[in-house]
Design a protein around this nucleic acid. Structure first.
Lengths: 335, 335
DNA sequence: AATGTGCAAGCAAACGTTTGCGTTGTTAGA
DNA sequence: TCTAACAACGCAAACGTTTGCTTGCACATT
């Protein structure tokens, strides 16, 4: 199943077969048709490895790195990226890092080995990964980050305006008259978690909303962490009037805890969450939240990467995506 | 960044560099270390294309084809597959078909061109795709199907025992005393949809449960279709006492319709669903459903593919996965 | 008849590796 | 001192393509 084999079988030279199949001039119509037909008959598909090797050109492949494919947020981003890449004829390797720097670096090396044209990544925030990305970037590899980024590296990135989102949520509960706030956080190692938590604490302080230390729970972006955190908050004697949940999977767990303890939302406890997920929509009552735009994030990440590859207009190094407050029925009006 | 470049820089022969870097004998320790250090310094990673080309061997890459990455079911399968593949050092191209035969065939061709070692696919059921898979399989390509399969092709597949799942659900509502049944179906072009719908109709008939034609709604596996279907059912004068939802995304839409119309579950209408999704768990009341095992499905699909590639024990052509009935509070007891 | 034009096809090198074989040079055993 | 053994390294071909160059040939132009 190679051009050489076709050439041998048909008694012509490989170069002629190559030209015939790739539509280049220099082959008579008769011979070209004969070659095309024979290639179809034996089920020949060109070897992309050999082709890209010889052409010294691009492989037409990209690498995408995400921490967790089970997280609907990332699944939605991937879906959007896929759409753009397909329309530009790119294939991509999907790599899952599990937030493990070693695994991520392993994948990066293997992407480089496969000579991908570019990499789109939601990187694991860690010194090792940071150094590795930095090396890759300075050796002219094309990289675009989404959802996360390294503040000290000036690699293009598309991220949600997390400060804005948190402030919208806190403004809302403030207007509804809440003065005490609990927080279900996620891993503070992730830049996202760090920004959201810090913004929440600072902004709450500014608005004179009380956040007791024991009302801050959760240090992991998992469903289980959300479940345990919400339980811990609910079981305290002195509770906050509203709980802010900083991420989607933790929200799922938190809602499970609420259901299990039959806590009444918003009568007994109010809730606001980051991310407009399925469960925030379908919970009873539906949860007030800020919506990120993972679709837009994916589209921009992919388009920007392609633009850079095509040496089109260079974009802003960092694109901040707006959030949208979606007011539902999970916050009690206290004034 | 190539072996030849390293060789030139260091004044040795490329073959020596190759041996040094791949740990083969025939290089003095001194020189080997020097070469390794230099390779690290300039950030050299072997060219997987050239290597696999020369070795006439496998590329260490696979292709995965799914209809929709946004569907949590497939996301979970992918996650499980990824886990297995990573532990066996495989990379994979992720291809999304969108249930579009042309797109799927395009992706298949491109996977072949990239000379993947094997393909794991939830195929779009269509004559064109069927013929294409058939051709690939008879030309010795390694393929494993999951979730879907072509009954007339004997390509290995891992699928849920859909008949069993449907029967468990219908048995349950039968025991609870229901005699009238509505169904929110999905695309009957998918073998999954076809089997589920047919089993439901036949088995309901057998148990003398009435299914009026106007109680069968929905012909698409989308959230929107589920939403519209549930609305149509709820707005009828004569309603069934229970509605069976045949798939996960349609269930999300159906639940949205329920919330919107403020229909009381299970007092006004009972619900049962295929797939134990987030929203079936978190809805109030939580929905009685049968659980597939997407994780197991992914693990088996990946392991079987790898077994075949390693020419290990050949497995059963088709593996049927058991379903599990999860009884919650969405079905009213009528007797 | 000599020359020019243009098309069809072959030739060979190159992309980056790998690997069987051949060539050195050193050392140990007889 | 001779040679056998072995280690260290070079040589060149091959994997499947692509592409600039050359060759061969038919036909048209002078």
């Amino acid at each position: 199943m190679s051009i050489t084999k076709i050439a041998k079988d048909l008694g012509v030279h490989p170069s002629t077969v190559s030209r015939a199949l790739s539509g280049k001039p220099g082959v008579s119509e008769d011979l070209r048709n004969k070659i095309i037909q024979y290639a179809e008959k034996i089920g020949y598909y060109p070897d992309a490895r050999a082709s890209s090797l010889r052409k010294k050109g691009k492989t037409g492949t990209l690498g995408i790195i995400i921490p967790d494919i089970g997280n609907p947020f990332f699944a939605t981003v991937i879906k959007a990226i896929e759409d753009v890449l397909y329309s530009h004829n790119y294939n991509f390797f999907l790599c899952v890092s599990d937030e493990d720097p070693e695994k991520e670096i392993f994948h990066l090396k293997s992407l480089i080995s496969h000579r991908v044209d570019g990499i789109i990544a939601a990187p694991t925030l860690d010194n090792k990964t940071k150094n590795f990305y930095s090396k890759l970037y300075s050796s002219k590899k094309t990289i675009v980050f989404f959802d996360r980024f390294f503040p000290t590296l000036d690699i293009p990135s598309i991220v949600t305006n997390n400060e804005q989102g948190i402030k919208k949520l806190i403004n809302h509960i403030y207007k509804m008259g809440h003065k005490t706030l609990g927080i279900i956080s996620l891993s503070p190692e992730s830049i996202t978690g760090k920004i959201r938590l810090e913004t929440a604490l600072n902004y709450a302080k500014k608005l004179k909303i009380t956040v007791q230390p024991e009302w801050i729970q959760g240090f992991d972006s998992t469903e289980e962490s959300g479940y345990l955190s919400m339980k811990k908050i609910l079981k305290q004697k002195r509770r906050p009037s509203v709980v802010l949940i900083l991420n989607d999977l933790t929200s799922l767990g938190a809602l499970r805890a609420i259901s299990e303890l039959k806590a009444n939302v918003p009568e007994e406890i109010s809730l606001v969450a980051f991310d407009d997920t399925y469960w925030n929509q379908i919970f009873n009552p539906p949860i007030t939240c800020v919506k990120q735009d993972p679709k837009e994030m994916g589209i921009l990440a992919a388009k920007n990467l392609i633009n850079i590859l095509n040496k089109k207009n260079v974009l802003k190094k960092q694109i901040l995506l707006d959030t949208k407050l979606i007011i539902r029925q999970s916050v009690k009006k206290l004034i």
